[in-house]
């Protein structure tokens, strides 16, 4: 009896793979309906992020490092001094919170076909981290808890107040290779 149990035990020990599948979850946008132009967005409400085939980053027309992207994104969405170059805010009615200003900013991410996947993921990760930190700060200010500790309604409200708007451009060859 114990022998059989041992045998099975060793079999399962060997075959088991303990890999937990984890990753960055994203929603792809549905394909644009033909003949309909995308709604116009004001220049100041777009944070342009470009990655070229050499894995170099261009944010709002200026070269930047991946490590700066998080702060830049946060500054873009928060815009505490109402800077003319950063995102606008619109007062929206959010359940549980009432009338609060919500940023109209959109991050536009564009990459070359030659960009490495590693770079792409680290940029996506920085953007996600920025939004996550903003949501954490917001949740702490309004509910006194971290975003992860909120209940469903509260987290829905925070998500509405601090939206994660990342738009990926239709693919194209930026540098022709």
């Amino acid at each position: 009896m114990a022998d059989i149990a041992f045998l099975l035990l060793i079999f399962f020990l060997v075959t088991t793979t303990m890999d937990v599948d984890s990753g960055i979850a994203r929603m792809l946008p549905p394909p644009p309906p033909p003949g309909v132009d995308p709604p116009p967005i004001k220049e100041r409400n777009i944070l342009k992020v470009l990655i070229n085939s050499k894995d170099m980053l261009l944010v709002e027309g200026k070269p930047a490092a991946v490590s700066d992207l998080r702060e830049m994104t946060k500054a873009f969405f928060l815009n505490p001094a109402n800077d003319k170059d950063l995102s606008e805010k619109k007062v929206k009615n959010v359940p549980l919170l009432g009338e609060i200003p919500v940023s109209k900013g959109v991050i536009s991410l564009k990459n070359d076909r030659g960009t490495s996947y590693k770079m792409y993921v680290s940029v996506q990760n920085e953007l996600a981290a920025a939004v996550h930190e903003l949501r954490d700060d917001f949740a702490k200010k309004h509910f006194g808890k971290k975003f992860n500790e909120l209940n469903e309604q509260q987290s829905k409200a925070v998500k509405k107040a601090v939206p994660m708007a990342i738009s990926e451009a239709e693919p194209e060859n930026i540098e022709g290779n």
């Binding site: 990753g23 394909p31 076909r113 960009t115």
Partner: peptide, 28 residues
């Protein structure tokens, strides 16, 4: 794989958009 070029990834993403599989997860 982390050294893959985005070209093929973009093609796959476009194809997924076309068939309506919008929920994706970049495994990391």
């Amino acid at each position: 794989d982390k050294d893959t070029k985005m070209g093929i990834v973009t093609d796959v993403k476009q194809e997924l958009r076309k068939v309506g599989a919008f929920k994706i997860n970049y495994s990391t």
